[in-house]
């Protein structure tokens, strides 16, 4: 049964990923991307990695949504673009992603209702992940901190140029 669950989630992930790269409007692609990430989260859960599954939903699906919102906010939309936006988000658009998400939802309910169904047979709890991260992989965590610092300093520097150009444009 687990195998069937896996194949359903995997085929949803593949289908939506293909849809992401073939959609012509960014918002449609993004919605499919979120569904794809949810499907991957289900796969992680089936593999016995509930922590990774939770991160997938919280960070990827959640953070990407927020990032998208920021981008839309920074684009300074005029009235014509608002109308266009409305056209993109008409109800018909929601049918495909909703069906796929519903399938994933039923899968999740099935998994949570029954006994733990795992393809790998071993579940790794969040506690074990945490213990590993702060013992064996401590150096990796530290290095990841520096990776984020590099990204932060870099985006500050590149973004400043853009902000200054904008300021000069305005006044």
């Amino acid at each position: 049964m687990e195998v069937v669950l896996f194949y359903i989630a995997a085929s949803i992930a593949l289908t939506t990923s293909i849809l992401v790269i073939t959609r012509t409007t960014a918002s449609h692609a993004l919605i499919y991307l979120i569904v794809s990430l949810l499907a991957v989260a289900v796969i992680f859960y089936l593999l016995g990695a509930p922590f990774a599954a939770a991160l997938e939903v919280v960070i990827y699906a959640g953070a990407i949504m927020v990032l998208f919102l920021f981008v839309v906010m920074m684009l300074n939309l005029g009235p014509s673009q608002v109308a266009q936006e409305r056209r993109w988000l008409e109800p018909r658009m929601w049918i495909g992603p909703s069906i796929l998400t519903l399938i994933l939802f039923f899968e999740m309910v099935y998994i949570l209702a029954g006994t733990p169904a795992l393809t790998s047979g071993v579940a790794v709890s969040a506690k074990e992940v945490g213990e590993r991260l702060f013992t064996t992989y401590l150096l990796g965590v530290e290095l990841a901190g520096f990776l984020l610092l590099a990204a932060l300093v870099g985006s500050y520097h590149l973004g400043r140029r853009y902000m200054r150009a904008r300021r000069e444009e305005i006044g």
Binding site: Y137, G140, L143, L147, A150, G154
Partner: peptide, 17 residues
């Protein structure tokens, strides 16, 4: 491999900027 990837990305991200 994790150390390789982290090192490579710290290097590459700094280089992009």
């Amino acid at each position: 491999f994790a150390a390789v990837l982290l090192g490579l990305e710290i290097l590459s991200i700094s280089l992009y900027v």
